[in-house]
Amino acid sequence: MALPAAALAMQAIKDKPKARITSKVTTVLLTAGLGLGAFFGVRALIGKFKRNNRERLALQEGNPASFATQLKMAFENDNAFGWGTDEEMVYRILEQVPSASLMRKVLRAYKDLYKNNLSADLKSELSTQEYAIALEIINSKT
């Protein structure tokens, strides 16, 4: 009795209608994939262009990219006598930014160069007290 049931099950599996993807669905899927690929490709190229431009401008004194680069270097301070963030250098660099509008440009340049938020990096690199001092310096800009 089990044999006919197994044979019937096998026959039902063989007779089951197959799902087919039409050429229109295939075309839509390929077009969507190419569109997404083009979008992310162009986005990456624009990001690379912005980063390269910021890096070039970082060599100019007083440029927002220069301040952003100096801050990153202060975070990655690896000298012979210690390691970690050079807090005094961070304060000095923040004090050298003359205005609030230039500070906003520094924040944007930092994000373009390092794909990180400067505020978040300050918070992670500094203690709570040091972070409060840095925020005080930033907020004192007019």
Rank of each mutant, 00 (worst) to 15 (best):
N116H: 14
Y110L: 02
L126S: 02
R56C: 14
L30D: 04
A6E: 11
I93C: 00
N79M: 04
Y131Q: 02
N139E: 08
A6N: 07
P4N: 05
L57C: 13
M10D: 11
T26P: 00
R20P: 03
Y110T: 03
K111Q: 13
F40Q: 09
K16D: 12
S66K: 00
R20F: 15
P17S: 07
L34H: 02
F40W: 15
A38V: 09
Q60N: 07
G41Y: 07
A120Q: 10
L135N: 06
G41D: 03
K141H: 11
T31N: 09
A109T: 00
A65Y: 02
S99W: 13
D15W: 07
K72S: 08
L45A: 13
R54N: 15
A74I: 02
A74H: 04
A120G: 02
D15A: 15
L94N: 12
E125V: 01
M103L: 11
F81L: 09
L34E: 04
Y91S: 00
L45K: 13
L118H: 05
E87K: 08
W83M: 09
F40L: 12
T128G: 03
A19Q: 14
I93S: 01
L118K: 01
A100Y: 04
V28W: 09
V42K: 09
L34W: 05
G35Y: 06
K18G: 04
L122G: 03
A7Q: 02
R54C: 11
E95W: 12
L57T: 02
T27C: 10
L3D: 09
N116L: 14
F67D: 01
L118R: 01
L45V: 10
R104F: 15
Q11L: 05
K123C: 07
A132E: 06
M73D: 08
Y114Q: 02
K16M: 14
R108S: 05
I93A: 00
G84P: 08
M1L: 05
V97M: 10
E88A: 07
A58L: 00
D78W: 08
Q60L: 11
A32T: 14
N52I: 15
G35Q: 01
R104I: 11
N77Q: 06
N79V: 09
I133A: 05
Y131E: 01
E87A: 08
P4T: 03
R20W: 13
T27D: 10
E130D: 08
A65V: 03
N53T: 12
P98A: 11
L126V: 02
Q129V: 07
I93D: 00
L94C: 08
Q96W: 07
G35T: 04
N117C: 15
Y91F: 12
I133D: 04
R56L: 15
A5W: 06
V106R: 00
A132L: 05
Y114W: 04
